[in-house]
Computed example of a mutant assay.
Amino acid sequence: MTIPANWTGILLAAGRGRRFDPLGDEDKLRQILPGGSSVACHSAAQLQAVLPDLCVVVRPDNQQLIRQLQQNDYPVLVCSQADDGMASSLTAALLQTKDSAGWIVALADMPFVQQTTIALVLQALRNGADIVVPVFEGRRGHPVGFSRRHLPELLCLTGDQGARQLLQKYPVLEVVVNDPGILQDIDEPADLQAYLHKT
């Protein structure tokens, strides 16, 4: 049996971000960061810099985000079941990229993750680990890496828990990183403003 050589980055960008804007008018993933990129595009750039094979999952009614991503040449996968929960978006991406050696799953609302962190997770997977998480100051964060060994169970996930249950069920290699970005997501406008004031 031939083992695939390529590893894929999956960026989950299909959530509605109700805590950022309950009315849904201001998508947090489309907010512009100081460098001129949107939150989602910056997250995609960080992931693609390490993993050229990239899949960005979006929901069908977020046409502005789809255009934003496509204008920057990021490969978009529209998931019609995205509102069923994070697992539906993840499953759609896995089915689209099921010939990969494994995956690094990142969240689009976490644009502050460093490329070096993603590279360390990838290296651990290449060295034989089946599940890899980065750790900063004793806390696990994102993105999370999976080898293809876990594909059958990943495809069975449901709801909004993502792959958390696999991290509880199987051995996990923790990679210590000097990267607070693995813990920093943009949930509310204050999270974005706090970052903008630092730059």
Rank of each mutant, 00 (worst) to 15 (best):
M1G: 11
M1T: 11
M1S: 10
A5P: 00
A5C: 08
A5R: 14
R16I: 13
R16K: 14
G17I: 05
R18L: 12
R19G: 01
F20Q: 03
D21T: 11
G24H: 13
E26P: 00
L29I: 08
G35C: 09
G36T: 13
G36Y: 13
S37N: 12
V39F: 01
A40V: 12
Q48M: 09
A49V: 01
A49T: 13
V50H: 03
P52S: 06
D53N: 15
C55S: 10
V57C: 01
V57M: 01
V58C: 13
R59H: 10
D61N: 10
N62K: 09
Q63G: 09
Q64W: 14
I66K: 09
L69A: 09
D73C: 14
Y74I: 04
Y74M: 08
V76K: 05
L77Y: 06
L77P: 02
V78Q: 01
C79M: 08
C79G: 05
D83A: 14
M86R: 13
A87P: 01
A87V: 05
A87F: 05
L94Y: 05
L95I: 04
K98F: 04
K98A: 12
K98D: 14
G102D: 12
V105I: 15
D109P: 00
V113C: 08
V113S: 02
Q115A: 06
T117K: 03
I118L: 07
A119P: 00
Q123M: 11
R126T: 13
N127I: 08
V133Y: 02
V133R: 11
V135W: 03
F136W: 15
G138N: 11
G138C: 13
F146T: 04
P152T: 14
E153P: 00
T158R: 12
G162M: 09
G162A: 10
A163H: 06
R164D: 15
L166D: 05
L167S: 02
L167H: 04
K169T: 15
Y170S: 08
Y170C: 04
P171G: 03
E174W: 07
V177G: 00
N178L: 02
D179K: 05
P180S: 06
P180W: 12
L183V: 09
L183D: 06
I186M: 02
P189M: 09
Q193E: 15
A194D: 09
